[in-house]
Nucleic acid binder design. Structure first.
Length: 432
RNA sequence: UCCGGCGUAGCUCAACCGGUAGAGCGGGUGGCUGUUAACCACUAGGUUGGGGGUUCGAGUCCCUCCGCCGGAGCCA
């Protein structure tokens, strides 16, 4: 008998199949067992009736407990009573392993501390299954997007000597006799080098921030996708970002809609995410906030509350551009008409999910970059390679970074970012 | 790091003004041929986070330590 996955069953109605998976719940009425079965591709109900099954099969089904692993053989039956449309009428139930202890995650509610401690088992739960399937779709969408545009994937290093953005928030490690090195906060500087070699490049990988942040939007280790394009200026950069985001949302709606619906996500809100996105300047955002009763002043950076107020005025993501250069990173290109602001943009997701992208045009002038390094008290020696990029064939270039977990949280409609990554690293949790 | 909240059975919670520990789920036993967090009956399960104090008496009040949660700053 052929081994099939649950996701294939609707194409095999009436056939005898073998399934290999786990029992997530079992209900029994004495002479009939209902095995709630999962195999990592989906969920289905297996029915074992004493009137039709062989006695030893019925007996082995009675012995199953929650999270037993099991091989089931039986016939695929179309059944309107099943939420999945089909169910399996078992002819064989072969337990692989039956737990000695009760499964710690019960059918009732649990607290978040307990669930995070059992993350290795929590991954088996249906909600987590759907979230991580959406994450998988988002990462696949990013790769498709760049493949179609002939970008080159450049894997940037995890260990770095140069500081990406600010000297604070870095994880320090001893690197043999070399001395201190850091876990990367961003691969951007390396992508800038690569874009002068490959024109249009992107990366996708983990980044680390030693911030003692305790909010629903922060992780210590999070995944970031960054892109960098030579000869792109500010406007080109925004256009690439809005095309990427609308592509990701469309891709997820087409390829993972069932998962979104299982999570209870209102997909109508996501269907509105089409290009172009609105752009407002930092100056306009300040006015908008002041009109909403905030006493924020020009020159202040935005916090989570401010981002939520701004984003609540829009149905799709919105760009906030031209921030004061003092609140932004050292490498951002000043606006030629107003040197006190830089050619940057943050993309704020709707529904209070905050900043999902930060990007900018980069300084391409050697002398100006050198001045900025000094202004930010960064050690020139460690950035010599970065300065070199401005010595040979320097061109205007732009790029951005997308926070993967924030994007997953927004598209799935999650309360907290910690469910958007398989094993979250938060402030005081490294287990499991 | 700062501010606020919480810590009671394996899990989620209840216990009035300080008066002597209770329910659901999970576990065990039995019943049930269409269950959807199945249901019904019976049953086992507790140093109330640790330490100290006040009191005739503390899960409850006070001090302290630990753990967790939420928020802020910072950021994606």
């Amino acid at each position: 008998m052929n081994w099939f996955y649950v996701e294939e069953l609707k194409d095999h109605i009436g056939e005898e199949v073998e399934l290999r998976g786990w029992v997530w719940n079992i209900r029994s009425s004495g002479k009939i067992h209902f095995i709630q079965f999962r195999d990592g591709t989906g969920f289905v109900q297996v029915v074992v009736e004493s009137s039709s099954a062989r006695p030893e099969v019925f007996e082995s089904a009675s012995k199953l407990r929650i999270e037993s692993s099991v091989i089931v053989r039986g016939k695929v039956i179309e059944d309107k009573r099943s939420p999945y449309g089909v169910e399996i009428h078992a002819t064989d139930v072969i337990p692989i392993q039956i737990p000695d202890e009760p499964y710690p995650i019960s059918k009732k509610d649990h607290g978040i501390d307990f669930l995070m401690s059992y993350r290795h088992l929590w991954l088996r739960s249906r909600r987590q299954f759907h979230i991580l399937k959406v994450r998988d779709a988002i990462l696949m969408a990013i790769r498709h997007f760049y493949k179609a545009r002939n970008f080159t994937l450049i894997d940037t290093p995890i260990f770095t000597g140069a500081i990406g953005e600010t000297a604070e928030n870095l994880f320090e490690l001893d690197y043999f006799d070399y001395g201190k090195v850091y876990l990367t906060q961003t691969g951007q500087l390396y992508l800038e080098a690569a874009c002068m070699a490959f024109g249009k490049v992107y990366n996708l990988g983990p980044t680390f921030r030693a911030e003692k942040s305790k909010t629903r939007r922060h992780l210590i280790e999070f995944w970031m996708h960054e892109a960098e394009v030579a000869y792109y200026e500010h406007e080109d950069n925004l256009r690439l970002q809005e095309e990427l985001i609308s592509y990701i949302v469309k891709y997820v709606l087409e390829n993972a809609q069932d998962h979104l619906l299982a999570l209870g996500r209102d997909t109508k809100k996501l269907q509105k995410v089409e290009v172009p996105f609105e752009r407002i300047t930092y100056d306009e955002a300040i006015k908008l906030l002041q009109k909403s009763g905030s006493n924020i002043q020009w020159g202040d950076d935005f916090g989570g509350d401010e981002e939520t107020v701004i984003a609540s005025n829009f149905e799709k993501p919105v760009f906030v551009t031209h921030y004061p250069r003092k609140v932004k990173a050292f490498y951002m290109q000043p606006d030629p008409k107003r040197p006190e602001v830089v050619r940057c943009a943050d993309l704020l997701a709707p529904e209070g999910y905050g900043e999902i992208i930060g990007g900018s045009q980069r300084i391409h002038d050697y002398q100006l970059l050198l001045e900025r390094l000094e202004e930010f008290n960064l050690p020139k020696e460690k950035y010599q390679w970065y300065l070199d990029l401005r010595k040979w064939g320097s061109v205007p270039h732009s790029g951005f970074g997308l926070g993967i977990e924030r994007t997953v949280a927004w598209i799935c409609g999650l309360e907290h970012i910690r469910e958007a990554i398989p094993f979250a690293r938060t402030l005081y949790r490294i287990y499991p």
